[in-house]
Design a binder for these strands. Structure first.
Length: 491
RNA sequence: GGCCCUAUGGUCAAGCGGUUAAGACACCGCCCUUUCACGGCGGUAACGGGGGUUCAAGUCCCCCUAGGGUCACCA
């Protein structure tokens, strides 16, 4: 019987769900699902200053949007709770005391100012890495009492052994070796506010929550030796580590706000489908065995493995995301896409409100269906559908103007208008027939027929399928628009 | 700067000693639809440099270079 896999995503609620965080969560999620394991969501809110309830809500929200649900954790409960670090403080204190009792840790009374001065001194001496001197290591009980009488609040530091090799057996990187003397000296495990420090809390939680694998960003790899030291001191079994590389921006630095949108909810508001983000993120740093890149959730679960996770960082390519989103946009249920389009149409001023009656909604559906294959995200919709909402237009480009200046252009447009007027039923096939007839009658080439009509209708040289477009526009409007172009003072 | 990681086209990437070095996005061309788009077909484009090891190196080793990460009472 295979060991029950347990993995977790452990964000700190100091910001919205980030693309990088979402990818880390996704890899954990896929790994758990692939092995029939458990995916835990834990909140690391030990930074009392920066953690907020708002963010703590935003992160699960983002995960739900991506349809990446957790089996255990906040909002969900489970056998290893609580799942919020601020609620686990008793545990941390207990284990910190155990470390002190066993001689692995000690109280340190240095003030932030003193430490700052010490760091600066290190730097001035030309040392490459500032490290804590360990001056409080040998304090006697009396000295500690004295310091405390001064009103000093201690932190608890872990004693880092000298010249000890610490090796991380990493699933994606292989063995990574650190020397204990390069990790910065005795580090803090309990802060003076009584809260556990990150490197301590993760270990206690991961161990107590029985995590079998810790899959997280590469930015945590330099913390890992510290954590391993704690695992060993407490006699906890090590989880299997897997450090996945960073997601980079166009300039090849770690993805951040500077690179545009990094919060997952931004992608939601810009009109990306969660299944597109899901699929795209899965392919960032992992690749399937086959060549197919459009993969369903089930396919991803089935195919995912840590062995195929890439070691090198990946640049986030919005163009490819748009291509993929476009694919899902076309595939998605039309009612859903139309509903998601509403806010963008309101934003553009084409709609007063998202509350619209069925008749208008159905009309909108036709429009959305006509243009959804042309956009990478719904935010791009307004410029594609503008012609259905306003009759104000001019020649979009000089090229378009030139089309109308063509000798045969006005003739073609007039001919088209006339035939459109005579039409009994306004429907796409009938309009198609008109184009055919004009081509035949005039002997002109397709382009010389279609283009003038398109430009006369929209001022543009590109746009959605014309027969469909004209039907949605309606006969009167179409005629009016063409007539206006014909009388443009630019001609 | 110290420590750690990484290095195949512009981007994502396959490759795990012997290949004409996949595929995708983007770009370009052709075809299709008598327009635009979709779609189909094709094209441009890569193993950072230098040493080894080997009959054979994109694949293994070393050095250099470049990029990234990290050095807090933040996580």
């Amino acid at each position: 019987m295979e060991q029950q896999i347990r993995v977790r995503f452990a964000p700190s609620p100091t910001g919205y769900l980030h693309i990088g965080g979402a990818r880390t969560a996704l890899f954990n999620w896929l790994y758990a699902k692939h092995h029939g394991g458990t995916f835990v969501l834990r909140v690391e809110d030990t930074d009392l200053q920066r953690s907020t309830k708002e963010y703590e809500k935003a992160i699960p929200q983002g995960m739900k949007w991506l349809d990446m649900l957790w089996d255990e954790g906040i909002e969900m409960g489970g056998d290893y709770g609580p799942y919020r670090q601020t609620e686990r403080i008793g545990l941390y204190r207990q284990y910190a005391q155990e470390l002190i009792d066993k001689g692995y840790a000690y109280k340190c009374y240095c003030s932030p100012e003193e430490l700052e001065a010490e760091r600066n001194a290190c730097l001035e001496r030309g040392e490459d890495m500032p490290r804590y001197s360990g001056r409080c290591r040998e304090l006697t009980l009396e000295q500690q009492a004295e310091l405390e009488a001064e009103g000093r609040k201690p932190v608890i530091r872990f004693k880092v052994p000298e010249n000890k090799q610490i090796v991380i057996h990493d699933s994606v990187r292989g063995d990574v070796i650190f020397d204990s003397s390069t990790i910065g000296g005795d580090f803090i495990i309990m802060k003076s506010d009584g809260m556990a420090a990150y490197n301590f809390a993760v270990v206690i939680d991961d161990a107590l929550m029985k995590m079998t694998h810790v899959i997280r960003g590469e930015d945590h790899i330099s913390n890992t030796p510290k954590q391993i030291l704690i695992y060993e001191a407490l006699g906890f079994a090590l989880p299997q580590f897997a450090h996945i590389s960073m997601i980079l921006g166009k300039d090849r630095t770690k993805l951040s706000k500077r690179h545009g949108h990094t919060a997952v909810d931004k992608y939601e508001t810009e009109g990306y489908l969660p299944e597109a983000i899901f699929n795209f993120l899965a392919l960032l740093g992992w690749s399937p065995e086959g060549t197919e890149e459009i993969l369903t959730k089930d396919q991803l679960i089935e195919q995912f493995s840590l062995e195929r996770v890439a070691k090198n960082p990946a640049v986030f390519d919005v163009d490819k995301l748009k291509w993929m989103n476009n694919h899902y946009l076309r595939e998605a249920d039309l009612d859903r896409v139309t509903r998601l389009s509403l806010p963008h149409l309101v934003e553009a001023g084409f709609l007063d409100s998202e509350e619209i009656e069925d008749k208008k909604f159905n009309w909108l559906k036709g429009i959305v269906d006509l243009v959804r294959e042309r956009v990478g995200c719904l935010k791009e919709l307004p410029k594609e559908v503008k012609l259905f909402f306003t009759d104000e237009f001019g020649f979009e480009t000089e090229e378009a103007e030139v089309i109308m200046q063509e000798e045969t252009a006005p003739t073609v447009v007039r001919l088209f208008m006339q035939k459109l007027k005579e039409l009994e039923m306004l429907e796409p096939p009938a309009i198609k027939k008109i184009f055919k007839a004009i081509t035949k009658e005039t002997g002109l080439k397709g382009k010389q027929v279609f283009m003038p009509v398109r430009v006369a209708l929209t001022g543009q040289m590109h746009g959605p399928d014309m027969p469909e477009m004209i039907c949605i526009l309606g006969r009167e409007k179409a005629l009016q628009r063409m007539d206006r172009t014909l009388h443009s003072d630019k001609l």
